[in-house]
Every structure is written in C-alpha cells, then in structure tokens.
Nucleic acid binder design. Structure first.
Lengths: 339, 339
DNA sequence: ATGAAAGCGCTAACAT
DNA sequence: ATGTTAGCGCTTTCAT
C-alpha cells in the first residue's frame, strides 16, 4: 500500500489540492512547486488508490458507443459478451455503453451510425470498421473532435486510433501454415478460402500463410484461393466447382466465414480431404466432433470485446494511453477433445 | 449504477448500519426486519459498490501464504508472476502475500512451512501440495482452524479445499492423444514419458490419453511408459534405453519435466521420431524453433497463480465462495509460429 | 497560485 | 436490536 496524496502534501508542506493539481496535470500551480511535488511523488513511489479514484469520480459520466456486427454470428456474440464483461467491471463508475449492432452494414449505414453516436455525445467509440475511405474520413473527423476510437477485430489503415484490438492476421496465417504442415505430413495441395481478397485481414492471413510455406514447406502448394464473401451458399458452389477442377486438393482451409457451406459441398461430393476452419461456430463445433474438421483456429473474440472497452475506459477514466497501439489476441488451436 | 445502502435504508425506514448488518450477515438484527431488507435489496437490484467497499475496508489486513515450487522452473516462475499480478490487483486493500518457494520439497519440509505460515497468522494458503497423507492431515487441520486453502497445479484427494486451480489432467491427456493422432496420421508407436506414475496428475493424463486412443485410434499404440522423475539425466538414460529396446517407436510424448534430457538422448542417437512436450520451458522453445518438437502443450501457469490468489482474495475480502470448487485452466497448443 | 470543505458508498467502532 | 459517527483516498467546487 503506497503513500497517499495527503502524506505527500504534508511532506511538501502544501495542501492536498495542490498535490492533486500537480499529479493530475490540472495546471494553475507554481512551476517550482510542481517540480518538487512530482519529484517527491516519484521518489516516494506514489501510486494512486484506484478504489478511491473510482469512488470520488463517480459522477463523471462517460458514454462509449459500440458498432459491431453482432446479429447471428457467434464470433461477434462473444465480442459482445466481452464488451458486457468489461462494462460490468466498470460498474462503480458512471459509464454508459451504447451498442448499435446490425447484421451486415453498408458504408452508408456505418457512417450514419457513427454520426448518431456522435450526436448522442459519446466520448469514445469501439468499432469494427469497414475498409472504405469514407469511413476513414469519418473516423478521423470524429477523432479530431476529441472522440477516442478503438478498432475491434478489423484493422483499416489511415486512421489515428487509440488502439487496434484483434488478431494479428499475418501471424495467424503463419500458424495456420505450421499446423497445416503438421497434420498433412509436410506435403499437400491446398485450397485456401477467404471472404474476400480485398479484406485486409484475410489477405494478410494469406500472406503469412504463403510466407511460411515458402520458407519451410516446399512440398505444400496452394492450388487455388477461393473467395466466398463469407457466404455459405457462395461457399458451397465455389468449393464444389474448385474441387471438381482440382481433384488433387487434399487440404481445404477456411480462413473465413462460410465454412459450413463449403464443408457441406465437400460432404455432398464425398470428397476426401483434411479441413481447417476459423472460429468456433456451432457448425464448426459439430464438424470437429464428427472428425470432419481437424482443428479450428480461434481468435479470442471475448478478449477482443473486453480489451476494447477496457482500453477506452482506462483512457477516459484514468487518462491512461496504451503504450502500444495494437493489442493482439492469441490464435488458439482447438481440437475435438478440447471442446 | 445500482441503488445504494443509504437509499435502501431510507426506503426501509432504518439506518444504514442495519442494512449493512443484514446484507453482510453480521447478525444482531430483528428477523422480520432482516427479511424485509433482504427482499427490498433483491427487488431493487442492489449490488454493492466494490470501490467503496475497498476503500472502507482498507484497514482490514489479510495475509495469504503461498507455497509453490518456484526455483529454476519456468512453469512455476509463471505461476509466481500470476500471483504477483493478482496481488497487484488487490493493492488498495491491505493484503500481504507471504511466499515460501523452494526448489524441491520433502513432505517434512512442506509440513514445516505450513506450520510456519499458520504461526505467522495467515488467513489463507495457496499451495502445490505433495500427494501424501501427512499433508492431507495437516491441511485439513489448518482448514478446521479456519484457514482457507486453494490447491494450485497439483490436486490431491481428501482435502476440503476452497478450490483447486489448475489443469484438467484427464482432458489434457485426451487433447494430447487427439493431437498425437493428427500429427502422426492416425498411426504410431508411442513412448509416453511421465514424471512418476504415482503422481496423480501425470497418471490421470496418461489415463485420458489411453481412453482416446482406445475409442478413436486403433492404430496408435503405447509401446511403453517411461518414468523420469522429472529429471533430465534420468530422462536421458531411460529414453535412450527405451528407444534402443523399442526401435519402432515413432512418437515420444513428454508429459513431464525432463524433456530436455530425453530429447538430447534422441538427438545423440540420431533417432528419428516426432515429439510432443509439455510446458514452454526455454529449452522446449528452442526445440520448437528448430522443428525438433512438433508442438508444446501449455497449461496457463500464469492464470493458475492469478486465479488462486484471486479466489482467496475474493473470499476473504468479499465473502465470495466460488460456486464450483475446481477452476480448470486451458490446455494451450503452441506451435513454432506461435512463439 | 493555493487551500478548505464536502462528498462518493461503505465499514467499523461506539453509543443507545 | 438499532442508530450515530468517523473515516478510507480521492475529486470537485468554492474561497482566498
């Protein structure tokens, strides 16, 4: 238990308020006194009592807006649960989390939602941003207005975020390659399914994957990249066409949504191959249980939601700015027995 | 932000203290009043303000003793780090963590340390207990005296713990089997290395492993179980002898310490086989990087230490008793690219 | 530029 | 059995 402000004040021969001003940068303090107190706090190893802070600043209301794609997707359900949990941890403060979740957003819709949140007076926003210049502009405008933004799950370039929270896609691609090699005996013909090549995350994942194949596994080849728009039916059609055209494929990797449709195609063709999928959806769980999928890679969706809100709360409440502006979640490898 | 005690008191027409007595079970309160207040709190959805609680009970000093095998073992270093982190989170309360860490403990030594801690007046103990009847007795005696105990990492039977925090060994064994099958194409001759068959955890892990082989993988056989006492040199000798005697072994699983010695033996013999090891020691990391080990299984040592203290703190400080008295950590699968 | 005082929600003596 | 009072360490007015 560290020293208190009161004690510092006594030692410095000033009042508690002055110490408060110095330590919280509220200004209006003699420069010399300021230095003296800062130094004192430093040498005495002062750390603020977080409980007292919480109690005292209870009336400081903060509003955080959230825009995540939540409906009917277990991944985002978990993100939402993480947000919930973080909000819970912030109870005791006057924080209000305004969630706007929609199944699938157009750029227009997302822009509109952002404007709405700004109007409602949020001081911070957690968002899974669409990779579009208009969103970049909009976010930068809001940031310029003093609204803090954290990007969750999806990263886009050109925005001055407080932080990005989500998967390190390159690394997850590399891990996928490593795993793919392990389960296929270092030799395979691979179909790599992504949502869209223009999606930053999916593309990076593919790059990471390729890098590792090139460096370590000369006998593993990508026979093709399939884009399924994260859609089960497109997935069904395209996978089925692809496998007909490339019957030597013996490993299919779903680095995207739509694994359900793709796997159904494989089963309907009675095609024999190994499968790796991403995200622990209900269907992927079942496929795992039935040994259809070898393993599923997860990206800690709960943690993503949790950390996004935590970072924002810490910033707004305690003025903490995260030292690195990227918070990477782990890529978890889930096998049947781990369910 | 929920309703406060003060408000409840006003609504019930009593004083704050009475509400406090009721809600914290301090007794000395009219049964009828008690019911009324309880009901009121319930219907109004009262939740205590944790920050205020922390502030007010600052002077309530608590002492927690820790006995873990810490010296020179990265696994327990991580456990210790978790303990540290939890203690940090409890700063703001007057908690004192007394750590007694020793390299390797005899039953006598552990008993003595327990007595010492009791004498120092700890209210709770986190311990990695030795599986011995004397320890069981000693712990139960302390528990009878009102000292709360949490078992970390190692579970032993017959003790009325507040909770066990650690790996689900059976499950980790099952996962190991699953993984082993994946990387060896569902067919292998396996050497399974444990510290000691009499160690509850290691034995359970072996059971889980066997179960899965039996159910799912008829072509995978355990050609032998090696006991290495978690010692690198015993490991070296025994593994080397075993492989000479069983030259068809093509997968070695180190479900114990001493993987370094065992792997060295394999390398010295220029023996070719796949390897799975437990715990991310410095050496295992290197072997992973060099593709000597296929993958390493981890058991979240940090989380183990963290949760042990958290459970104890929550109990002592807030009277929370965990609903389930087993907290299982995940079995993490780590591949080279994940390092 | 600095200080004094009230209050955040709760606990723990100390009354009654 | 119940109420009163004084803090816990901090923030926030409001004086000076």
């Amino acid at each position: 238990m560290s020293i208190t402000m009161q004690e510092l004040a006594y030692m410095a021969g000033v009042s508690r308020s002055t110490v408060d001003r110095v330590l919280n940068g509220r200004g209006r303090v003699n420069a010399e006194t300021e230095q003296r107190i800062k130094h004192l706090a430093e040498t005495m190893g002062y750390t603020p009592n977080i409980a007292a802070k919480a109690l005292a600043s209870k009336h400081k209301a903060i509003k955080i807006g959230c825009i995540i794609n939540a409906v009917g997707n277990i991944f985002f359900d978990e993100v939402a649960a993480g947000i919930e949990a973080a909000a819970e941890e912030l109870s005791g403060f006057d924080v209000q989390i305004i969630t706007r979740d929609v199944a699938k957003l157009s750029v227009d819709q997302q822009t509109r939602l952002l404007d709405q949140l700004a109007e409602e007076g949020v001081q911070a926003i957690a968002i899974t941003p669409i990779n579009d210049p208009r969103i970049v502009d909009k976010l930068n405008t809001l940031i310029a207005r003093g609204i803090q933004v954290v990007a969750v799950t999806a990263d886009i370039a050109g925005v001055n975020y407080l932080s990005y929270v989500g998967c390190n896609h390159i690394k997850s691609g590399r891990i996928t390659a490593n795993l793919a090699a392990m389960i296929s005996g270092w030799s395979a013909e691979i179909a790599f399914v992504v949502g869209s090549k223009t999606l930053l995350g999916h593309d990076q994942r593919l790059s990471g994957f390729k890098e590792v194949l090139k460096t370590y596994y000369p006998d593993m080849h990508i026979s093709g990249v399939i884009e399924n728009q994260d859609d089960d039916f497109i997935s069904y059609t395209k996978v089925s066409q692809f496998l007909t055209a490339h019957p030597d494929t013996n490993l299919v990797i779903f680095a995207a949504g739509g694994s359900h449709g793709g796997i159904r195609a494989i089963q309907d063709m009675s095609y024999h191959c190994k499968i790796i999928a991403f995200d622990l959806t209900e269907q992927n769980k079942q496929y795992l249980e039935q040994n259809v999928i070898s393993c599923v890679l997860c990206q800690e969706p709960f943690t993503q939601g949790f950390q996004a809100i935590k970072i924002l709360g810490d910033h707004l409440l305690f003025g903490k700015t995260p030292e690195k502006n990227r918070f990477y979640t782990k890529t978890e490898i889930v096998v049947r027995e781990a369910l």
